[in-house]
Structure formats: structure tokens, C-alpha cells
Simulated scan of single mutants.
Amino acid sequence: MTDTAAHPLQPAIRRATLDDLPEVVRLFSLPDEGNTKREDPGPPLPACYAEALERIADDPHNALLVADLEGRIVGAFHLTIIQYVAYMGGRVAMIENVIVEPELRSRGVGEVMMRWAIDEARRRGCFRVQLTTNKVRKRAHQFYERLGFTKSHEGMKLSL
């Protein structure tokens, strides 16, 4: 048996394109611990996904990013830069919808994605990076804590 942790993968992180959407939506639709998304990966892929990506691409403070491993999409996440008036006009980077192909978890893909996001937050002058993660995703919590994230706030949501 090969020790996959000894051979971390090094995907390239880049903005998602329309061609990436079927694979990104497939990843978001996978059954996963705490996944409450109800995505429709098609085929055909519903137009709402391309419309959303176009709106994201038009906003310089938003990005849907993918982890591309030799032409294969193996992960994705959404990065939003929030401009505050508080914190002396500071900026915060918000990471959402982090997903890694299940059979490639614990191979370094998530770490490459998060380190890229942290570096991008620094580049954009952010004073903090924050994320939310479902309370039932214990392995994800351990992963984020290993990267230096702390459980500092209690999140709340209101479904509309």
C-alpha cells in the first residue's frame, strides 16, 4: 500500500472558466458530511451556474477558483474580499464552498488551495482570512486548525 500523504499533490490554482463548471458543480453535488447543497449537475448543466459565474467574474472582489491537476479539476473554493469601514477601512478575505475530490483528500490539494487563498489575501492587503465550515465536519475543522485557523466566533444563518 502506498502512503499517499508522503506524496502531496500540487495542483495549479486558477479562476474557474465556463468549461470548468460541469466539473465544479459535480463536486458541489457530491454527498458529503454536512453538505446541504442541492445542485443539479445535469446534463445539461442548468444556465443558472453560468449566469452566476458571469456575475462573479464581473466583480473584482469575488472569485470562484479551481485546483487544476494536469487538466483535471480536483477542487474548488470561493474567495470574496470584503471591504469594511470598521477596522480602519480594513479588508477581510472570506473563503466559502471549499471542496476537494473525495479520493484525493489528505493528499495536499486542500492545503494548496488554502495557502493560495491566504497568500492572495495578503497580496490584497487583508488583515484577516475567515471561513465557515459546517459543525459536523470534524476532519475539516482539524484541517483548518492545522493551517492556523481558530474557532473564534459562532456562526448563524437564516434560510430565505
Rank of each mutant, 00 (worst) to 15 (best):
M1W: 12
A6R: 09
H7P: 00
Q10Y: 06
Q10D: 11
Q10A: 15
Q10W: 04
I13K: 01
I13L: 04
I13H: 00
R15H: 06
T17M: 05
T17H: 08
T17S: 12
D19S: 13
D20V: 05
E23F: 13
V24C: 06
R26M: 07
L27Q: 02
L27P: 00
L27H: 02
F28Y: 13
L30D: 09
P31S: 02
E33F: 10
E33P: 09
N35A: 04
T36M: 13
D40P: 11
D40C: 12
D40W: 11
P41A: 11
P41V: 10
G42Y: 08
G42F: 10
P43M: 08
P44F: 07
L45E: 06
A47Q: 11
C48I: 14
A50L: 13
E54Y: 10
I56N: 01
D58M: 07
D58N: 13
D59Y: 00
D59T: 03
D59L: 01
L64K: 00
A67T: 00
A67H: 00
L69F: 05
E70G: 08
G71I: 08
R72H: 04
A76D: 02
A76H: 03
F77N: 07
H78L: 09
H78P: 08
H78C: 11
T80S: 14
I81T: 01
Q83T: 11
Q83P: 06
Y84S: 14
M88P: 09
G89L: 04
G90W: 02
G90E: 02
V92Q: 08
A93I: 02
M94L: 15
I95A: 00
E96R: 06
N97F: 01
V98N: 10
E103Q: 15
E103S: 15
S106M: 07
S106D: 12
S106R: 15
R107Y: 03
V109D: 03
G110V: 11
E111A: 08
V112A: 10
R115I: 11
W116R: 01
I118F: 07
D119T: 06
E120H: 02
R123L: 12
R124T: 06
R124G: 05
G125V: 09
G125Q: 04
F127C: 06
F127I: 08
R128H: 08
R128Q: 12
V129L: 05
V129H: 03
V129Y: 03
L131Q: 08
K135I: 09
K135T: 13
K135W: 09
K138C: 12
R139I: 03
H141Y: 15
H141L: 11
R146W: 09
T150Y: 05
S152V: 10
K157A: 11
S159Y: 14
S159L: 14
L160G: 11
